[in-house]
């Protein structure tokens, strides 16, 4: 407004001042109007249920009977003693610890390969992106067939190569790896696109300068690409970690948490406890423990990846 005042000729000052006042006001109102719909939806569908769930987590709450009794921290204390819950956390973390680095490296590799614009590259970009579009249920069902011991594609190939066959999904020791492979296959394409966007944001003259200075491709990658990609990497790392710890749908369709509970992730455990065992209070407490864990990890990651390079 200061700026406008100085520009406007003296004669029109009073009018323009009035105009700019009401303009500013309506701007503000419009701003609120734009924020309001999503804010209202968030409050109704996110924050209100979260507060409710938080209250429920301190109650002994059976899903179908309306009896609720306040039991303080009992749910939380029992959860830390619950072997199944701890095991489910372990499964979720194992998944996250393998998927986050492996998937990150694969999608960055794909992005580097397909960075140059050409017809073949855009063809392959589409190919690698297709798994992202395929519905989880469909992908899981197809993978179940591929993994099958007696007639699956995977074992047919292993057999042709005279390698020992594996029954991936029905062996408690390997089932989680079967889920991991599917998970990476399904999500790598999406993060490849994110990395591509990040790569294209790096100014080309930096590479030219490095080239002039005699830096090779590898040196360029470590000295220019990686540091300048830090923000993208942070984004990808945080999102994949959260996604990995929240893993549920893939497991639910592919193994149902089996065999013998070896792929039961925390979210599957929470779902089971709430809707099969009907212990809503206990399940809500488990959900909040998971929420706290995810929050802490994300905060740490944000701090670690804090980028000090601007370009």
């Amino acid at each position: 407004m200061e700026l406008k005042k100085s520009i406007t000729p003296k004669k029109n000052l009073s009018i323009s001042n009035k105009f700019s006042m009401s303009y500013g006001k309506s701007e503000k109102l419009a701003g609120i109007a734009f924020v309001l719909p999503i804010a209202v939806l968030l409050i109704i569908f996110m924050f209100y249920p979260m507060i409710q769930a938080f209250i429920i987590s301190f109650q002994d709450f059976n899903l179908i009977s309306q009896k609720k009794t306040f039991i303080g921290f009992d749910n939380y204390i029992n959860l830390f003693k619950d072997k199944e819950f701890i095991a489910s956390l372990k499964h979720s973390f194992y998944f996250a610890m393998v998927v986050v680095p492996v998937q990150g490296i694969i999608s960055l590799g794909l992005a580097l390969l397909l960075q140059k614009k050409s017809r073949i590259n855009s063809f392959f970009r589409t190919i690698y992106f297709i798994p992202v579009v395929i519905s989880t249920a469909v992908a899981a069902t197809v993978f179940e067939l591929i993994y099958s011991k007696d007639f699956g594609l995977l074992n047919a190939i292993l057999e042709a190569l005279h390698l020992p066959t594996v029954n991936f999904l029905s062996n408690p020791d390997t089932a989680m790896n079967g889920v991991i492979i599917l998970g990476i296959w399904k999500a790598a394409g999406f993060f490849m696109i994110i990395f591509l966007a990040g790569l294209n944001n790096i100014p080309a003259d930096l590479y030219e300068a490095a080239h002039v200075d005699g830096a090779g491709k590898i040196r360029q990658f470590f000295s220019i690409t990686l540091p300048l990609l830090k923000r993208t990497i942070a984004f990808v790392a945080i999102i994949t970690t959260i996604d990995a710890i929240k893993l549920s749908a893939l497991v639910y369709v592919l193994t149902g948490g089996g065999p013998s509970g070896s792929t039961e992730t925390t979210v599957v455990y929470i779902f089971r406890t709430a809707f099969e065992q009907m212990s809503m209070g206990y399940a809500s407490a488990a959900a909040f423990i998971l929420f706290a864990i995810v929050l802490i990890i994300s905060l740490i990651q944000m701090k670690l990846f804090k980028s000090d390079v601007e370009y």
């Binding site: 029905s170 408690p172 089996g258 065999p259 013998s260 509970g261 070896s262 089971r272 099969e276 065992q277």
Partner: peptide
């Protein structure tokens, strides 16, 4: 019963698979 049912399922999985 829901707990009994799940427990029986897990019991046979532990014995049969694991």
């Amino acid at each position: 019963y829901t707990v009994v049912s799940t427990t029986i399922r897990e019991l046979f999985e532990e014995v049969g698979i694991a």
